[in-house]
Design a protein around this nucleic acid. Sequence first.
RNA 1: GCCCUGAUGGCGGAAUUGGUAGACGCGCUGGACUCAAAAUCCAGUGUCCCUUAAAGACGUGCCGGUUCGACCCCGGCUUGGGGCACCA
Length: 904
Amino acid sequence: MDYDFRSIERKWQSYWAEKQVFKAVEDSSRPKFYVLDMFPYPSGAGLHVGHPLGYIASDIYSRYKRLKGFNVLHPMGYDSFGLPAEQYAIQTGQHPEITTQKNIARYREQLDRIGFSYDWSREVRTCDPAFYKWTQWAFLKMFDSWFDPSLHKARPISELIARIEKDGYEDITPEKWAGATEKEKSDMLMNYRIAYQGETAVNWCPELGTVLANDEVKDGLSVRGGFPVEQKKMTQWQLRVSAYAGRLLDSLESLDWTDSLKEMQRNWIGKSEGTEVVFQCGEPAFPVTIFTTRVDTIYGVTFMVLAPESELVDKLTTPQHRAEVDEYLQYVKKKTERERIAETRAVTGVFTGSYGTNPVTGEKVPIWISEYVLAGYGTGAIMAVPAHDSRDYAFARKFNLPVVPIIEGCDVSEQSFDAKEGRMCNSGFLNGMDVKKAIEAAKDYVEEKGLGRRKTNYRLRDAIFSRQRYWGEPFPIYYKDGIPTPVPFDKLPVELPEISEFKPTSAGEPPLARAKDWTYEGYPLETSTMPGFAGSSAYYLRYMDPKNPDALVSPEADGYWRNVDLYIGGTEHATGHLIYSRFWNKFLFDLGYVCEDEPFRKLINQGMIQGRSNFVYRIVGTNTFVSFGLKDQYKTTEIHVDVNIVRGDRLDLEAFKAWRPEFADAEFVLENGEYVCGWAVEKMSKSMFNVVNPDDICEQYGADTLRLYEMFLGPLEQSKPWDTKGIDGVHRFLKKFWRMFEGLNDAQPTKDELKALHNLIGKEQDDIENFSFNTTVSAFMIAVNELSALGCNKKAILEPMVVLLSPFAPHIAEELWHVLGHEGTVSDAKFPEYDASLTVESNCTYAVSFNGKTRFTVDLPVDMKGPEVESHVRALEQTDKYVGGQNIVKVIVVPGKIVNIVVK
RNA sequence: GCCCUGAUGGCGGAAUUGGUAGACGCGCUGGACUCAAAAUCCAGUGUCCCUUAAAGACGUGCCGGUUCGACCCCGGCUUGGGGCACCA
């Protein structure tokens, strides 16, 4: 009987689907385990062989956990709102809904062929109104909340109102509040809401006609599409993510994520502890607060700088300098973000004509304006210490401002001295102190004298939440007499309206402005939509209770599944989705809707699978192609050739002629009768003709082979090129395993057979827990080689082997499970018990050497590990028989060979 | 510029974390089976010296150090990948 993987896989895939084998049901008698994949955006191109890598890994882990007795939740869905579908709609007029549904169907088909153990009854789609109802709900909850800085958590806005009415809050007195109009009250509260509307400089992408979040922009270009992005001041919905910066940073500690990913988040959040200091500025003088992390350098201040966008610019510009300043502001305004990056570190600026007073020295320093100071960070104003800050230094040199060093012996003739080391000088009460001490002493001094206070700043900005687009969640907000007002919860969802065209209106309004009757109770609804990350921020919660019409997730379901135990996905979401989701979850946690503060306990980033491209070499001016080894004898051009007509770097000549009409009459210069192609590792993409479709692999080798091979390719977290060449090895292994079931018998296993099996059990358990799937596959091959060399076809050995294989190659495992005479499914089996004593021989004689010379022999159990052997030999030492009273420092064992004893 | 991260045969990669470097797979070479091919099986396969073997020497990007012992730890480079980049 041959290994007919096609019919086996078809059979078991439909069995799993019909019997709903992987349906997860809350069950408090069993421990839960939640394994999640980052759900895909269903693009038109379909899946290539690189996409399922993480899905296969998470599936193996899920199936393994099931064998270990866990109640596993392993769902899948689609992140189905987004720009590509809408861009496609604008070009073709095809409704995004239609293309999205089509792409989802195609994705599902491809996923199903690989044999995943998803509970499809829990599928979610972010573009489904029943799903985005809860995205809108969360937004309204944020609108209806404020961040209480004394509690460090979100509270209902009603509590803030009560507090204002009673005692006032910040600059809102009870009298001011009582006398305000509805509109004025709404404006005041906007400054505190977690979801709020505010005017800020935003990333505006004219080509896409929308604003973008910081993580959606790279090098001044949009991540989607690569279009230029410029800074523009606009009123937009925003989420007060920055309020959570401290908590997002602190609880990073508790997460089981890779260091590099945590580091990326730390950098993105960008905590810096410093001091705010007040300088009296202008004429007549008024206070200006600056932020610095180096108050200790305050004696070295020789000028101040304002951001061009700062409100202080206008106040501090003297009439004599007005024209010059205006000209500079115009110049800055015209520049796009991209130009700013292109002219890196071009030093520009202008003098305001005003002076500020150093509160410590009483000295007057000039106030300048420069684009190197950012309006959005700190206070938009700085004190400049050119001797000890490289940016201030460059500015001082350009505009001939004085440079005053305040650290003993530092040389500032060529560059600034930025290091926080040395001894202070020229600094009054700080003189003689070590810099690190001086930083603290200066902070204390400033606070004591009432000149300023300690302050922690974060780089993390609030998230811009509006997109001037169609294919996203509509805001449940309408404008009643110009006041943003929430649509009541029981009227959610606010469904996306049908529109005729998906472009912005000619007046530049978002596409929703085209919708007929886009109103609520006669008032206009918000016309922008939510960004892509809105729908993906809480989807993992919805999987816990996907059909619930009354809550995002019921307290029962949430209390059982709690949070994601294992999350697998790409590193590209490090500063986007993974920050927003954590923020979103913390917000819901504050309000008591979820029971865990963090959404993803452990996170693994799978590496990318790159493409391996092949090339042919056409002799210039001909239609003759020369083989790789001979190409240097001719003048050739390198042409990408479809990797699917190349096998082992040998070109299929007939397939090549049929590939493109222009190659139909191609001629070849061969070496040893073959055409050898060149190759290179590149990104997997259509244009490189190196895309390998998982469907083709499933057709040719089967899903089990694909799964094993993707894991065998290398460590999960590492990027590696796909090379179909090696796949025969794992396919051969499966065939070999299959053949072992011919002549199955009930004989008692021998010791060697048991050893091979238990070695594998131990190895697989360790490896899977460490996500080292590639070495597990190797271990399997070793075990099967050993067992087949022993001629083993005994049930007692093969039955546990089938269970061990089932997470990796589930289809063949199910089939063999039935060959062994079982009913039901192998996923109901138990993971075999590991008996360590079986994997080793009882005793072994070692030569004991000291400094390379054999001293004596000793009998030791071979499974003794280093420390055990050490204590064993130490015990021998007590008898004074072996080492002659010398002190043993360390004992090293190499099985079957030498024990090296280090003595003192 | 700063922060992560990697570098091991012809190739993908192992190495119990300081203890036999190169597991496993691919490829290659030779052999068995076959009229032949495919499939399958067996043997060999880091480099150098050598007709071969034994034996030996060398060998984990480079230079140096610690150690009885280093792919692993320390210092200094070279280089691939990723992230951040006027954040005061």
